[in-house]
Structures are given as C-alpha cells and as structure tokens.
C-alpha cells in the first residue's frame, strides 16, 4: 500500500474514476421521465408500425446503412416543426389530433439512445387525423433527402413509380395495388391486410386498410397515409375496421397534395 499522503491518492482517484452505476439505472430513469411523456400508445401506432416495417425491410434488404434506431425514441412534436421541413397541413382536412403529432428519431445502426435523441441523423413525422368516432387516418412524412424511404421502396426503372416493398411476413400482405397520377405525384394505393392465424372469438380473421404512398418531388417530401379502424379501449389496438375504400382514401390524399401546392 502506498502511503496515503503520497501517490496513494492518485491510485484512489484512478479507482474512483472507474466506478459507475449499471446501465439499467439510466434506463429506469429514462423510462420514468422522458419515455413516460411519449404520446399515448394508440396514437404512437403509426410511427411504431412505420419503425417496425422499416426494420423488417432493413433486415430483408441486407446491406443497408440506416435503420430506425428505436421506436422508443418517438417524441412529441408540433405542427410548426413539421412545417419547417416543408409540410403544409391542409385546413380543409379538418383538425388533426394535437397530441398525435410525433417525431421519429433516426440514427445510424448501433447508435446509443443519447445519440438518437440528441443527434439524430434525421427525423420523420407522424400525425393522426380523426375521420369520425371509429376511424382515423395516420399521416407520415419525411424529407426525400433522408435515406430511409428509399430503403423501404422498390422503384420501377421504366416509370420511376415508387412501390412499397412486400411486407416480408405471411401475416401481412398488400393487395389491389394501383397507381394514380395527381398533380405530378404518382400515388401508389393498396390494401394493407393483416391476417390473424388464431383470431379471437368474434374478432376479425383479416383486417384490411387502404393505404397510400407517394413522393411529392415539388416539396421534396415522402408521404405515407393509412386508415385505422376503431381503437380498442382495452389495449389501444384496433379490433374493428371501417371498411374504408381506396377511393375514399384517394380523396384525402388529393387534399394533402393540394395543401402542399398551397390550396387549403
């Protein structure tokens, strides 16, 4: 043992510098602070679906650089923030659910929570518009400059129309795919279907939601819009479907495109 009055204190300081709590301590703190303030679970669904689907595609695509870091890093946002990336919410669409506006942080694979939160490479945005008591519409968008949208798409080399990739799971399929041109945008419409192999009693065996995706090259944004059915009060997940048609969805999509062109 070194004499405590001499170099011993240097060794003591070196030992102290190596002391640290377990990572679980910070995880617990974040769970009780920042993550507790996330939007409600049901309202998070579009973003988490987006993250999950994106991850699915990332895995399928193999050699890719980016992925959505963690769905946990979805944070409340406001419309002014979305407007700063070039999004114009069309007033004619009606009022969106204010607390549904959220920001999805994207950071390189292997990033820490801290990096994803403080230094995201880019963000996507998500909001929900309530159509009526039983039906909602999720709107997601992000800059075309950001790489994630291109990872989850397949482009027809002849027409340069963007199609969503196959979901990569037999429980999820895309059916009745069609492309509609509107004001310079190739809008890809389809029915996104989820099959329940073991449906609950009186529950649906298959739910079908119209969805649309398009690139708005004029505003430089990527868009994705989906319908949602009734949110169950028990777990926040939908159990019934309003049977929304692609035609009805296209009407809302046109309103959004018009909004981007300054026609609200």
């Amino acid at each position: 043992m070194n004499h405590p009055c001499e170099s011993g204190w240097e060794a003591y300081r070196a030992d102290c510098a190596r002391l640290h709590p377990s990572d679980q301590v910070l995880e617990n703190v974040y769970d009780r602070t920042i993550r507790k303030n996330r939007p409600r679970r049901g309202l998070l669904r579009p973003a988490t679906i987006l993250a999950a689907v994106a991850l699915l595609f990332v895995v399928a695509a193999g050699a890719v650089t980016y992925q959505v870091h963690r769905s946990a890093w979805v944070h409340p946002a406001d419309l002014s923030e979305a407007e700063s990336v070039g999004f114009h919410y069309p007033a004619s669409l009606g009022e969106y659910v204010p607390e549904s506006m959220s920001r999805l942080h994207c950071a390189p694979t292997g990033s820490s929570d801290r990096q994803a939160l403080l230094e995201p490479d880019y963000c996507w945005y998500s909001m929900i518009y309530r159509l009526d008591e039983n039906r909602s519409m999720g709107i997601q968008f992000g800059s075309m400059d950001n790489p994630l949208w291109s990872e989850v798409t397949e482009t027809d080399p002849d027409t340069e129309v963007w199609y969503p990739q196959e979901p990569g799971s037999e429980n999820f399929t895309r059916e009745n795919l069609q492309v509609v041109e509107y004001r310079g945008c190739s809008i890809c419409l389809d029915d996104f279907c989820q099959t329940f192999p073991d449906p609950e009693p009186e529950g649906p065996e298959k739910i079908r939601d119209a969805e649309a995706q398009w690139l708005d090259r004029e505003s430089g944004l990527w868009f994705s819009v989906q319908f949602y059915g009734t949110l169950s009060s028990s777990d926040g997940y939908r159990r019934e479907v309003g049977g929304v048609s692609q035609e009805e969805l296209l009407g809302y999509v046109r309103t959004i495109v018009d909004g981007q062109r300054g026609q609200t």
């Binding site: 405590p4 011993g8 060794a11």
Partner: peptide
C-alpha cells in the same frame, strides 16, 4: 466484480 484490481487505499477509505 466492478473493480477486480484496486488500490489498497481505496479499500482503506
């Protein structure tokens, strides 16, 4: 477990 090798002064403190 956390500090397998440490100074005797640290333990003494």
């Amino acid at each position: 477990v956390l500090l397998p090798e440490r100074s005797a002064l640290f333990d003494a403190v």
